[in-house]
Design a protein around this nucleic acid. Structure first.
Length: 473
RNA sequence: GCCGGGUUGGCCGAGUGGUUUAGGCAGCGGGCUGCAGACCCGUGGACGGGGGUUCGAAUCCCCCACCCGGCUCCA
């Protein structure tokens, strides 16, 4: 496994593709901005978390010991407003959508996160950071809250390459008590009848940016390796995190590699409530199954914008079917005691493709190129299965484990759904009956069986090795 | 206005100077098949526009056009 040695990643902070060298040897710390749990997750969330799940799987495959942390924003104006509408306590509403979020992630096979951290569990850390920032003169208190003074942090804008002076007129009327319009809230004082906490600076709620540094500094310390999120968060959210953390700890850089995902749009427009064009993860999963959705999300390069259309899911479903069929064909391949020349040749090519697959991932997580290598492997395997039709037990083991290795790093599941003994026996019975009908050339009846089974989602394929069947939905 | 990303065949999507402009979906021809499907083999078809550098440009430089995002809610 040499492929991981030269992992290269694009770092927003430097604007370059860089060699990945973790801060603490083989231990890697990665944090990704998680959801604000006030509604169902949409496919834009799906893209981000599917991608970083793949990153996590790759890092672990490459031998790193990864601590992957995701925050859950459960304190937020949108949650409070939504809770008011539904007549529910804000935290209760947050827990509800948090659990839906986990369901969606599980359906997409996003299973690599070590810890989900809720903002509401980190009030002591938040207060400690605010206190220190005040002591160091980076923050100030007014009658509306505690704010970070961006003029005390000359690096503000270094991530998003923005100059403070050039930031245009703001969309929201700035709080008149702030020193600079760009200063952001660390603590927001709120009326007592609203949801909040009693703090050293009065009753209220934390600012959005401070929760992430509270969580990450608590778990990772003053510096860590990878911070991920959608590109839209780079400014001001991630910029604010840098300002807070580096001012608080005095250590730079807070994060070594910043990785940002391109936005997913619908018909060229950003998904938003007001446009009413939000597509939920659970809806696409319901209609297409989870694997085609995941396959679609990783089939374009993560930094490119991606425009979603339903037609693309149709294409992804066909592609997934190709992967699955190849896996099934290989699984069913007859075992032979001898190792032929064709097998030796095949296994050499497979080894080469495996190397290329992981090299593609090491090249800034080029998942489309990795998939191309996987498809090449599929084509080779299919050709072998149809031309040779048998393989040594050892060869089969190598092929299957190579498939499993690649698919598991990509997070694509191909488990055969058919586990019911009853179902298997019933289909087997029908196949035998149909086989006898075909021998007697009673094709009308045999085709009716095939057609009716297809309607039920079971597809038959007559091959020289007999009739095979698979579940197609 | 400033900053960032993008524009590759019918659709999607890799590719940063020449060996092949990958791969998937869809199409076409053939094989296999009772037929179909699956699979295999073959096949056509693209680098937003204009300049420039070079023996050679999708790739480097300049200009232009268009699309998307950020500029304190947003994954």
């Amino acid at each position: 496994m040499t492929a991981f040695a030269d992992l290269r990643v694009y770092n927003t902070l430097t604007g370059r593709v860089e060699k990945f060298v973790p801060l603490y040897g083989k231990r890697v710390f990665m944090f990704v901005c998680g959801p604000t749990v006030y509604d169902y997750s949409h496919i834009g969330h799906g893209r981000v978390f599917t991608f970083f799940d793949t990153v996590a799987r790759y890092l672990r495959w490459a031998g790193y010991s990864l601590f992957y942390l995701v925050n859950i924003t459960d304190v937020d104006d949108k949650i409070i407003n939504r809770a008011k509408e539904e007549g529910m306590h804000p935290l209760k509403l947050a827990r509800k959508y948090e659990s839906f979020y986990y369901e969606d992630m599980e359906s997409l096979n996003v299973t690599s996160v070590n810890l989900y951290a809720r903002a509401s569990d980190y009030l002591p850390e938040i207060w400690d950071q605010i206190r220190v920032l005040l002591e160091k003169g980076h923050a100030y208190e007014t009658e509306t809250g505690v704010y970070f003074d961006i003029t005390t942090f000359p690096d503000y804008g270094k991530l998003s390459k923005q100059k403070i002076e050039e930031l245009r007129v703001h969309r929201i009327e700035p709080d008149p008590t702030k020193r600079n319009p760009g200063d952001f809230a660390l603590w927001r004082k709120r009326p007592k009848d609203e949801f909040g906490w009693e703090s050293p600076w009065g009753y209220g709620r934390p600012g959005w940016h401070i929760e992430d540094t509270a969580i990450t500094i608590k778990h990772f310390g003053k510096q860590y390796d990878i911070h991920g999120g959608a590109i839209e968060l780079a400014f001001p959210h991630h910029e604010a995190e840098i300002a807070q953390a580096e001012s608080y700890t005095g250590v730079k850089p807070f994060v070594k590699y910043w990785i940002h995902i391109g936005l997913l749009t619908i018909k060229g427009e950003k998904m938003s409530k007001s446009l009413g064009n939000i597509i939920r993860i659970r809806d696409v999963v319901q209609e297409y199954g989870p694997e085609p959705v995941r396959l679609l999300l990783i089939s374009s390069f993560y930094r490119s914008p991606m425009d979603f259309r339903w037609e693309l899911l149709d294409q992804a479903r066909s592609s997934y079917q190709r992967i699955k069929t190849a896996y099934d064909n290989l699984y069913d391949l007859e075992v032979n005691s001898e190792v032929g020349n064709a097998e030796v040749e095949l296994l050499n090519k497979v080894k080469d493709l495996r190397d290329r697959f992981f090299r593609s991932l090491a090249d800034n997580f080029n998942t489309p190129e990795a998939l191309a290598n996987l498809y090449e492997l599929i084509r080779l395997t299919n050709a072998y299965v149809s031309e040779v039709g048998e393989i040594s037990e050892q060869g089969k083991g190598i092929l299957l484990s190579t498939f499993n290795e690649m698919l598991s790093v990509l997070g694509i599941r191909v488990e055969r759904a058919v586990d019911s003994v009853m179902l298997k026996s019933l289909v087997q019975l029908l196949l035998e009956v149909r086989s006898q009908l075909r021998q007697r050339r009673m094709y009308e009846l045999s085709d009716e069986i095939r057609g009716r089974l297809r309607d039920l989602g079971i597809e038959l394929q007559d091959t020289p090795q007999g009739t095979k069947w698979r579940i197609i939905r």
